[in-house]
Nucleic acid binder design. Structure first.
Length: 251
DNA sequence: TCATTAATCGCAC
DNA sequence: GTGCGATTAATGA
């Protein structure tokens, strides 16, 4: 909770608490890892920081000043924004290889979002200044980042449409499909245990609505539920729910 | 086992 | 559809 994770003063070489450097990292989804050949001797990769987060720990606080960007090395997080009456709207879920906090990058001085670890998470933290330096010097890297931003914008525009035009039932189904697409399944259940409230916060409804839709879907044999674990029984049936209204979005 | 926390359900608006 | 409160199930210390 304290601000010590923003501590960028790490004297030595590339060693970290758990020994992952950009060179030894195996996460090929990471933009920086993919461009390592051209970024290898930049100060950016030499001075990155590693941060360990426990489950439930918030590592980005709304309103805090932006000093850099987070890349997820391992684990899953949720990114949210707090609404008027204190209700939180989950903007997206993110997993390894994704970037967090990029919206505040550049002109914004403060984060407009918060981020919480959903499980044990390892993060790579890059300072804003060094990142800007790397972007100015490496057009290819800059281009990759631009594609990432364009893609993110597209997804968030799709989500606006989802929330404003779909019924609650469709939004909940859409959320299940989204989690399924993004995180896959494990032993027949979605590979990401979320509370009903978290489903609600993502789908833009209330916890009760999610429960009601879930129990309806269970009766219809479309999904199964055991506590937090949700299993998809009839993928085609769920997709049909949304396809019928032509709102299916692959975000 | 007891104490919390989360999931459901029912009911009024 | 939404929001509150009571009941019950699940989880953790």
């Amino acid at each position: 909770m304290s601000a010590k994770f923003i501590n960028t003063s790490r004297s030595q070489k590339n060693n970290t608490s758990y020994g992952v450097t950009c060179q030894t990292c195996e996460n090929l989804k990471c933009l920086i890892k993919r461009r390592l050949p051209i970024l290898n001797d930049s100060r950016l990769v030499q001075q990155k920081n590693n941060i360990n987060c426990k489950k439930g720990q918030q590592f980005i606080i709304e309103g805090a000043p932006v000093n850099g960007l987070f890349f997820i090395l391992e684990g899953k997080v949720k990114v949210f924004r707090t609404g008027i009456n204190g209700r939180e709207q989950i903007v997206r879920f993110a997993k390894e290889g994704e970037i967090i906090g990029h919206r505040g990058f550049g002109t914004e001085e403060y984060y407009s979002i918060g981020a919480i670890a959903l499980e044990q998470v390892k993060l790579c933290y890059f300072s804003k200044d060094l990142l800007q330096e790397a972007l100015r010097e490496n057009p290819k890297f800059t281009y990759d980042m631009m594609l990432f931003y364009a893609n993110e914008l597209n997804k968030s525009e799709s989500k606006v449409k989802t929330i404003s035009q779909m019924t609650v039932r469709e939004r909940v189904v859409d959320t299940i499909l989204y989690i399924n697409r993004k995180f896959g399944t494990l032993n027949g259940f979605l590979n990401l245990p979320l509370s009903r409230k978290e489903y609600a916060d993502y789908a833009g409804t209330t916890e009760e609505q999610v429960i009601r839709v879930f129990s309806a879907l269970k009766k219809e044999k479309l999904i199964s539920a055991q506590g937090k674990k949700i299993g998809v029984l009839d993928m085609a049936g769920l997709k049909k729910e949304i396809n019928e209204h032509n709102y299916f979005l692959d975000s």
